[in-house]
Design a protein around this nucleic acid. Structure first.
Length: 518
RNA sequence: GGCCCCAUCGUCUAGCGGCUUAGGACGCAUGGUUCUCAACCAUGUAACACGGGUUCGACUCCCGUUGGGGCCGCCA
């Protein structure tokens, strides 16, 4: 069709590295990525680090890590701090053309004036005092060492543009005062650099948060003054906290890396974020990044803000955890078990010949030890543990508290945990002694969950009938599970016991008996 | 306060004038399964902010009211 004569679509994600990658920014990045990929266009990452005081390299790293983690690969990368010559060129042009001027007004005075205007109910606006300064005067004052900024003259007019999401939007520029576009020739400011870069980088579509809507007329006026073409705008609805205000720190976790640390999977975040303000218009709700590229459409984007619903995030994460191949899931859980001091990795240094990269040896994890007991535990065993908890995990960070009993020597729990319903203390002792006897009769070679289940289920019926004259497996199975896990809830005891092994199972039953008798 | 944006179940949303007793998902509740928790299955709960128009007919179009939000930096 018109594919050949159509302009190459190009989007950008332009974060400022003044904080970790915000969850809302991550969604903006995702939408820009999806829109570009859907249209076979390019996706650009541009770090807006013009604010030297607030920009930090670790924030830039966090942003980059986050995007990579989500799988949002960019085609080109820019850093505004490395493009000062370009901005300077345009700044001089505006100054030469008298579209911008030096302003020597004092910051404090301006601030006082602004406050006064706001309290009076007027639009806070610079009065253009320095616009009338002659070139000579300005030069003189600069030479004298007076502090200054560079302001852009805002012509009074109606600014109209068509937002892809919101439709026709109109602003009255006479309400905007002449804006500061640079602190000096080498320190340009946001609205200016954005305008220059979006033009220089041939950005065709600007997808950004709705909070930036009021900046759009300023950038359009700048474009007009510089003779730039106007990109197409699409202002995304905001992500809201439970109180419906813009999502921020006080609502809890706000950065992508925090969610990552808590053990949310990248698939979860991609799927979840894509549905905040967008939906495919069908009843399908599970989407991978690649299926989103196929389905994404900007006209399905919502106008109103979307509340960040953590319950739904948990649900999706549980879903994706259940989908994860066991090997991969187990690997993902290891850092959490290590951090919880349940296991320690055993390193093995692989000796290698010096190579061009200068790496002489590489440490690889060859296995794990249980921290408390010092016993070795192999990856397969860890896999089995994770496998029985796979359908119970909502967040990877909760894995340690779920499985810690596998790694401990002695379990600490309250006596009363062992009692099922109306079991009397004397009965419990009989039950536990019986349990020990039954379990001890199973030989090492027959030790598996199937065998344990068969025997214990049939015995449990007998015991409850004898003791309580009812058929209730809980009288035997509950104390069994409690004794070996030390927890109110857990995976089924038979498979737990199989993994634990005969020796530890019997030991833990004995410990339970001792605890009761004490 | 000024400017701008928005408005369907608690939440994310479908709906683009009649097909709708307003659909799905999360949540919540109940039941099933079950020693427990989870998972799974079934059922239920719950919404078109309000008032005017336009129209034979409005959740859907227009206007207003109300409510919510965003922005008002020599930050981005």
């Amino acid at each position: 069709m018109g594919l050949l004569n159509k302009k190459q679509i190009r989007t950008r994600f332009a974060p400022s590295p003044t904080g970790n990658l915000h969850i809302g920014s991550a969604r903006t990045a995702l939408f820009n990525y999806l829109f570009a990929r859907k249209n076979r266009g390019e996706f650009i990452l541009r770090i807006e680090d013009t604010d030297k005081e607030r920009s930090k390299i670790e924030y830039e790293e966090d942003i980059i890590d986050g995007l990579k983690w989500l799988g949002l690969n960019w085609d080109s990368f820019y850093r505004q701090s490395e493009r000062k010559d370009i901005y300077r060129k345009y700044l001089e042009k505006l100054l030469d053309e008298k579209k911008a001027y030096y302003c020597f007004c004092r910051k404090e005075e301006l601030e006082a004036k602004r406050q006064e205007q706001i309290s009076r109910g007027a639009a806070p606006k610079y009065n253009g005092k320095c616009a009338s300064l002659s070139e000579d005067e300005a030069e003189e004052r600069i030479k004298k060492g007076d502090e200054y900024v560079i302001r852009f003259k805002i012509p009074a007019k109606k600014i109209k543009f068509n937002d892809l999401i919101r439709g026709a939007v109109e602003f009255d520029s006479s309400l905007i005062g002449d804006m500061v576009i640079a602190k000096d020739l080498d320190n340009p400011l946001y609205n200016f650099t954005v305008t220059i870069d979006d033009f220089e980088m041939k950005i065709t579509h600007i997808l950004r948060g709705e909070d930036l809507l009021p900046n759009t007329p300023k950038q359009i006026i700048l474009q007009e003054a510089l003779g730039f073409t106007q990109p197409i705008y699409a202002h995304l609805p905001l992500i809201l906290g439970p109180d419906k205000s813009k999502l921020s720190k006080r609502h809890g976790a706000e950065s992508l890396s925090e969610y990552r640390r808590q053990g949310y999977l990248e698939e979860t975040l991609v799927n979840f974020l894509s549905f905040l303000g967008w939906n495919p218009g069908t009843e399908k709700e599970i989407f991978s990044l690649s299926s989103l590229i196929k389905e994404f459409s900007i006209d399905k984007v919502q106008k109103s803000g979307a509340v960040f619903n953590i319950k739904r995030l948990d649900y999706l994460n549980g879903f994706y955890i259940r989908q994860k191949p066991l090997d991969k899931l187990t690997e993902l859980c290891m850092p959490y078990l290590i951090e919880a001091d349940l296991i320690t990795p055993v390193f093995e240094t692989q000796e290698r010949l010096p190579n061009l990269t200068g790496i002489f040896g590489k440490e690889i994890v060859s296995g794990y030890n249980m921290k408390e007991t010092g016993e070795k535990i192999d990856f397969n065993c860890l896999k089995r543990i994770i496998s029985i908890y796979q359908e119970r995990i909502k967040r990877l960070s909760e894995v340690p508290e779920l499985v810690d009993f596998f790694f401990k020597e002695n379990l600490v729990y309250e006596k009363k945990l062992l009692f099922w319903k109306n079991t009397e203390i004397g009965e419990l002792i009989i039950i536990l002694e019986k349990l020990k006897e039954i379990v001890s009769q199973i030989e090492e070679k027959d030790w598996n969950s199937k065998k344990l289940e068969d025997i214990l289920i049939s015995e449990s019926d007998k015991i409850s009938l004898e003791l309580k004259n009812v058929k209730d497996r809980g009288y035997l199975i509950w104390p069994f599970r409690a004794a070996i896990t030390g927890k109110e809830s857990s995976a089924p005891p038979f498979v737990v016991s199989e993994i634990l092994g005969r020796k530890k199972t019997i030991k833990r039953i004995e410990n339970a008996i001792n605890l009761i008798k004490r």
